[in-house]
Amino acid sequence: MTTSSAHTVRLNARKNDITFTSGLAPTYLQANLICLPSRYAQDFRLLCQRNPVPCPLLAESKSAGSFTELKSWMANITDSAIACDLDLRTDIPRYMVYKDSILVKFQCKDINEDWTEDHVGFLIGCSYSFENALAIAGLPPRHTIMKRNVPMYRTNIPLCPAGVFTGGTFVVSMRPYTLDQIDDVRSVTRPYVGTHGEPIAWGWDAVRALGIKNIDSPEWGDAPLTVDGKPFGLKTEENVVPVFWGCGVTPQEAVMRANLQGVVMAHAPGHMLVMDVKEDEVLDPN
Rank of each mutant, 00 (worst) to 15 (best):
L70V: 01
C35W: 06
M1F: 13
H267C: 04
Q49C: 09
G65I: 12
A6G: 10
I215F: 11
K235D: 14
V104E: 11
K213H: 11
P140F: 05
Y192E: 07
L33K: 08
T78K: 15
G194P: 06
K235Q: 15
E253P: 08
T236C: 08
G221C: 03
P199G: 06
I34R: 04
E279D: 15
D79M: 06
K105D: 09
V282L: 03
A133V: 07
T166W: 05
V188G: 02
C160D: 13
V120D: 05
T226W: 05
N16S: 14
L11C: 10
A59E: 11
V150N: 02
C35M: 13
T78A: 14
A59P: 11
A6C: 10
N286M: 09
V240K: 10
A206S: 08
P37F: 09
I200G: 00
N239I: 02
P176M: 02
A75V: 15
V97S: 01
S72A: 09
P93H: 03
F106I: 04
P224V: 07
N286V: 14
K213C: 06
A31S: 12
C160K: 12
P52N: 09
T2C: 00
Y192I: 01
T166N: 09
P231A: 09
T3R: 07
I77F: 03
E198P: 02
Y177I: 02
S80G: 03
D280G: 03
N239V: 00
V227H: 13
E279Y: 09
D17E: 15
R148D: 04
P231M: 08
I136H: 05
W204I: 02
H143T: 08
A31M: 06
S38Y: 05
I34A: 03
K278V: 01
I124H: 05
D110A: 03
N286K: 09
T3F: 04
S127Y: 15
R45Y: 12
W73V: 10
A64R: 06
M256V: 08
N149C: 07
D87S: 07
I212M: 08
N16K: 15
D118L: 03
P93T: 03
N239H: 12
L210P: 02
L103K: 15
F170H: 14
G248H: 14
D91C: 00
H196D: 05
N112K: 13
T8V: 04
A25S: 08
G211P: 13
V150F: 01
L24V: 10
C247P: 12
G270M: 10
V282M: 02
M256N: 08
G194E: 10
S173V: 04
D184W: 05
T169E: 02
N214S: 13
V207H: 11
D184F: 06
R148V: 04
I77V: 15
D284F: 15
P158A: 06
K62R: 07
H7N: 13
L103G: 11
N32G: 08
P140S: 11
P199D: 13
S61C: 07
K230P: 00
V9A: 05
K71C: 03
L134G: 02
V150T: 14
T78C: 12
